[in-house]
Design a protein around this nucleic acid. Structure first.
Lengths: 215, 215
DNA sequence: TTGCTTGTTATTCATTTGGATAATTGGACA
DNA sequence: TGTCCAATTATCCAAATGAATAACAAGCAA
């Protein structure tokens, strides 16, 4: 009689395990939508057994919500981080920000699937809706700050409208570029985005395209 | 001994039943995302029993795909239909088109949830991805046609870029307005959208705002 | 009125799902 | 090296899910 062998395992730090579970969740959702992200599939991809999920998260929904927060932070971080290395010239900073938002890894089919999958959950989960709202408004405020720094005199109302419009261009291009990656040439989204933002603001930003950063 | 009473029913035309099932599906998905749209919930909302779904659709996935096609057709139809009643002046037609895309029922939280829910499924279902691509490109072509009709001389490449940019503005504003209805004043999206599209095209479209249509 | 077709309901089934609980063992610490 | 806490696995469970099949009856046709 063979004794049934128990699966060997390693103990890990709490933070490491949480990150692994979140990463597994995001990987699965990006791969096939929320429906394939079952507790068992997540556990398997994270290299643990299903029961462990409830050791680190109150429920599956709690893990999902944590994953959403994680991905939204990652996305905005990518666009904002570029400002640290950006020059001080306001136009160049704006161009760098727009460009960073319109190329990988921000523009990415998997990122869109993640976004869509979580957006759908905002109907059931008020906390996830709040996460969405604060992420969106935070990004728009960032953009409005860049616009306000331009050498122009704008009223508060004008600033708000321009920020909304520029944000919309970025969001729309992000959406379409992520959903249909093959429909656009490399760098095309950045060029169109910078040009359009410039037109909305009444500036010729294309001169600053060299601050666009790497592809 | 009480004979178990069988639920009474009416026979309906095939088309009517299919429409009812699709409507029930959309209503559920919009209400709480794809996860609450189970065969039993759909059947209940449509006023039939679960088994009937498979009498009209090969599988649940087939019903989902049909529902997606239905909602996408409905959304683009709304924007395009306005052109039939629109004047012949190219600028006015463009404004009417943009405005129709940026107010209810196109801008609508439920519509966004539907869109997001189905977008996520495009990862598993190639047919649904194709539905998305043809809808997006169809809408953009429509827009490009309106831009080409303007009294300007544009190269094909310019036309393409402008159509992409204008489409992005519309998509972005639709997205944000649908996701956070309370973040924008009534008519604000239309005003911002028309202004931004005008800026991108180098036109002053705000004079044509009276062709914006009703709210 | 009487069949008959088939739209519709009822029942059943095998899986899957999220969660609860019990059993085990890794590894830090003495 | 031995002890012991808790991280982890293993097992179980009730509910839900999509689908298949059987039974029934609505309503048209003759």
């Amino acid at each position: 009689m063979l004794t049934p062998e128990r699966r060997p395992y390693r103990r890990e730090a709490e933070d490491k395990r949480r990150q692994a579970l979140i990463a597994a969740t995001l990987s699965l959702v990006a791969e096939g939508g929320a429906r394939i992200a079952t507790v068992r599939a997540i556990a398997e991809r994270a290299g643990v057994t299903a029961g462990l999920i409830r050791h680190y998260f109150q429920s599956k929904d709690s893990l999902i919500a944590a994953s959403y927060r994680h991905v939204m932070e990652r996305m905005t971080h990518e666009s904002v981080a570029v400002l640290k290395a950006a020059p001080h010239d306001p136009q160049a900073r704006l161009v760098a920000f727009v460009a960073a938002s319109l190329r990988p890894p921000v523009v990415d089919r998997d990122a869109l699937i993640l976004w869509a999958s979580f957006m759908q959950e905002t109907k059931r989960d008020a906390a996830m809706l709040a996460t969405h709202a604060s992420t969106y408004l935070g990004f728009r405020d960032q953009l409005q700050g860049l616009i306000a720094a331009l050498p122009q005199d704008r009223s508060a109302a004008e600033l708000r409208q321009m920020a909304i419009a520029c944000n919309a261009v970025i969001d729309g291009l992000w959406l379409e570029g992520s959903a249909l990656p093959d429909a656009f040439a490399k760098g095309e989204l950045v060029e169109i985005g910078v040009t359009a933002v410039g037109a909305i603001l009444g500036l010729k930003l294309t001169n600053y395209m060299l601050f666009t950063g790497p592809f």
